[in-house]
Structure formats: C-alpha cells, structure tokens
Design a protein around this nucleic acid. Structure first.
Lengths: 269, 269
DNA sequence: ATAATCATATTGGTTGGACCAATGTACCAT
DNA sequence: ATGGTACATTGGTCCAACCAATATGATTAT
C-alpha cells in the first residue's frame, strides 16, 4: 500500500455497524505459543524452579522459529512467569507468588478458563479499586469532567445489548472516571484492567436483566454523586452494586461447583 | 555449560555480599531500543495517531536488526503506547489515555526521570492500594500468615542501610501482606508495583533518618494491628505514614521546582 | 587435599536476508 | 457510483549463521 501523505488518523473511527461480530482473532503466532507456555506453567505441568528446554528445542516442539518463540518468551518474562538467563537457560518462576497484573491481563484477555479462586480475587480487586477511583474522581472532578462523564454515561447501551456485553463500554466509562480523578496512575490502572471488564460483564449480564435499575441509570446516578463531591456516596454506589453482583456470582459458582464435584484442570498437553 | 541433572534451583541465593552495588545492567539490546522509543513518545517528539517509520527503516535508525526491534515493539504494544498492524504500519497511541501499568513499571524500573505529575499520582496510588491490601490482610490473615509477617518485618534492615534503599525489602514485606490477604489478584498487583518500591524508597530515605520510629518498628506495629484484625487501625498506620512522606516529598519538590523555574523535559533527541 | 585456572560445550543474544501474508492505493471495468 | 483487480508497501515468519555469557569438569598450582 503506497502511502501518500497520510496526515493524521482519528484513531478509532468504528463504522456504525450494528452487528455484534467478534473482531476476528488475527493470531500472532507468538501469542499462540505464549498461551501454550502459560498453560503449561499454570497447570503445573512444569513446576517452579524447573528448567525448560532450550530455545532451539522449545521452538521445535512448538513448530515455530526461535525468532517467534523469543517474542513469546519476552512476554512470559514480563508476566513474571519465567526468567531467561543468557548462557544458562529458561527457568520457571512461582506464578502464585511472582506473577503480576500483566499475567492476569493476558489470561483475562483470551478465553482462558480461570481458577475460581483467582476469578473471585479479580472481582474483589475490581470492586475495591473501582470504588477507590470513583472516590477520587468525586473529590477532584471539575465541570468539564462531569460533562464528559454524563455524555459517556448517557450513551450507555441498554442492558443485554451486545455492545455492552463486550465490556468495552464499562471500560470507556471507568476510563473517563479515572481521567476525572486527575491521577494518571489510576488511568493506567484502568487500562490494565481493561481485559477484566471484558471478562466480567458477560458474567453479570444475566443478573442485569430484570433488575430494578438499568446500568445506564445506575451510572447516571453515579455521575450525580461524583458531581456533588460526595466521595462516600459515590463509592458506595459502586461498592453496593458490585457486591451484589459478586454475591450472586459466588452463589452461582458454588452451586455449579457442587454440581460437577471437582474443579477441572485447564492445562494443555 | 554441559548439564547433568540440575534438580532444582533455590532461586535467589545471594552471596552474603555487604556492598551495595548495582546489579550491573546487563542490557538486552531490545530494552535499549525500547527505552528510546518510549522516550520519543513520552517527550512528544512523535504525537498520538502519528505513523512511525516501517520496521526496516526504524531498525536501521536504531542500528539494530528487525528481529531485535520487533522484541521491543511487542512490549511497546503491551504498554499501550503503540499499535502495530500488519500490512499497515506502526501507530503511536495517546499514552496519557491508553498507557497501562506496564508502562509505569517500565519507566519506574529504569532510571527514567518521571514527570512530577505522574510521580505524585504513582505515590498516591501506592498509598491507597497499600492501605487497601493491608486492610484485607487484617481481615483474613491466619496464624501462619502472622508468623511469616513478623519474621519478614523482624528482618528489616536499619533505616538508611543500602539493602533497604533498594526497595527490595519494602517489596518483600508487602508481598507477604498481599499473600496474607488471600487475594491472588493483589499479589499480582504488588508484583506490578515492585518497580515503584525501588523508585520511592530512596526518595523517602532522607526523611526516614532522624524520625521517631524506625521503619522496622513501624512495620512490627503494623503486623500487630493486622493480627488484631482491626482493618481500620492497620490501614490507618499505612495511610498516616505514607501521607506524611507524600507531603514532605511534595513540599520538597515544590521548593526544588521554584528553584529551577521550569520543569525539565526528559525526552531524548 | 584444596583452590584457582582454563578449555569447552551449551545456551541465550544478535545478525542478515529471504519469503509469506495482509492491507491501502490507484486504476480499471461495469 | 460501484465493485473488482493489480501492485507496492508493510508487518509476520522463517532460516542459518555467528557472538557472548556461563555452568561444568578437567587441569594445574598451591
């Protein structure tokens, strides 16, 4: 594609498509390899401290080149799952102790079946951190922030709609809140949690339907609370709703757990 | 190095070295390249939406191979600073809006001079999130957690010692707290914040000296509060100390700001 | 015996260049 | 206008070397 001048690029200018189609997973081969490596570690197939085969052998096992494998390894390192040392080898770390949010992000981003314990932990973290950001936003939001918040909240699609289900919308709303908190670290935090929104929204969508208050109304109420500067009220709105969701989810998970007896392993091999 | 059996590997078995030497930056070339790209973006040398030169040209400019450049690009993508699209090109994203914690982690991890605004935001986030984890730990820590906490806290080196200055020790302590919170997502959070401990501890070390209570004593007091299960008291200890630090830091930053008139730019080029 | 030194095989790090696959552009047919 | 098509450009992958660090074991010095 020969370029001409290509001045700018308005970033995300989505077509007005109404259909809800998955964006088509344009796999990068290193991502697939990475997923396999992660599964191998999380499933316990390889244990902490253990030494993995060399890059050459690993690449061959995965039927890819060292080049691609290395791209995967960089991220594996970054997630805190492995340590790669020149002249030595690739060592598995204890992910229960050393994995970081990039790991969670990766797992949430793809379809990976998460361990129930981790899932509940993520949800709790999401609840507490969201409340925190909301609280800060209530303290610092100025008039233009409120305006923007109300705009985003007003555009919230109806409960159950596919747009909302993608979690993209929750993300947009909370990103706006984070921007209003005037703390860029929290903006980064919300961005890191992006994958989590996509993970949880579909889980709660069932609960949403037939509820007394639509998400849109709830969020508009939240904006009001933020505008009034009442930190406690604002964070309480978030806490309350999310706590309800969590309890419902836990209840359902519990009964579903009972139904199948034991937890399945997610490992590959 | 011919292998034999290599059973396990006790992970970090540091020699009893007393000297405080930097671990020697064993640069991976892709890291250097990455740092340059990040600087280019953060400094505003290239703007959001803008299109970067192709991989081939970019690699040549950096005097590295495409292979190495690509490893850097993967992380640049992961930090939320750029979007790479096959057949199209590499586009700069708006880091103020889309960067995530991996970005902060990277910046904090190296010496990068952080913008004061971001620095204060990070500190506030650190304070709030630490208090949150402590609060949860107070709610859920069991006897063995307390024992481990007390052990780690007891080994805290004296204020001003080089060990403590590295931030590694703060990290260990808070990781133990996170483990006691029984929420693996928070364990991940602490791991993501690891670089921040290394960033802030040296800043506060000046304040530590000549203080009424050593860090060790403070933390032992914190463990007591956690043991008693008093969430409020426990988180209050953290909040109070960190708030003090923040205020002192802000005060100092302010006067230092006044002294030099304007903020320096950290960009390369 | 014990400790220091050295040679070496192994392993990750980097290179250069080739080819595959996706995509924007411009041009053409309808 | 609309839709198709050829093509140049750009990222994605592969391959096969060579460089650099390091664990290991034999050698040598003490």
């Amino acid at each position: 594609m020969p370029r001409k001048k290509t001045s700018e690029q308005p970033a995300s200018a989505y077509p007005p498509s109404v259909l809800a189609l998955r964006p088509v997973p344009k796999n990068r081969i290193s991502e697939d390899a990475l997923a396999q490596l992660v599964d191998m570690i999380v499933s316990g197939e390889v244990k902490p401290g253990e030494r993995l085969p060399g890059e050459r052998e690993l690449a061959q096992s995965l039927s890819i080149t060292r080049t691609s494998l290395r791209e995967a390894l960089r991220r594996l390192e970054n997630m805190g799952l492995a340590a790669v040392r020149q002249g030595d080898g690739i060592y598995v770390k204890d992910f229960r102790r050393e994995a970081n949010l990039d790991f969670i992000n990766f797992q949430a981003g793809r379809g990976a079946e998460l361990e129930p314990q981790l899932l509940l932990g993520m949800d709790e973290a999401r609840r507490l951190m969201s409340a925190m950001v909301v609280s800060l936003a209530a303290r610092r939001a100025d008039a233009s922030d409120i305006k923007e918040l109300r705009r985003v909240a007003g555009e919230c699609p109806p409960d159950g709609s596919p747009e909302l289900l993608s979690g993209k919308w929750d993300y947009d709303f909370y990103l706006t809140i984070a921007l209003a908190s005037k703390n860029r670290a929290f903006v980064c935090l919300i961005n890191t949690m992006k994958g989590m929104f996509a993970t949880f929204r579909p889980m709660y969508s069932h609960l949403d339907e037939g509820r007394r208050e639509s998400i849109k109304d709830l969020n508009l109420r939240l904006v009001d609370a933020i505008e009034s500067g009442d930190e406690r009220a604002a964070s309480a709105i978030v806490e309350e709703r999310m706590r309800q969701d969590m309890e419902d989810l836990a209840k359902r998970a519990q009964s579903s757990e009972k139904r199948k007896g034991k937890t399945r392993k997610a490992g590959a091999k």
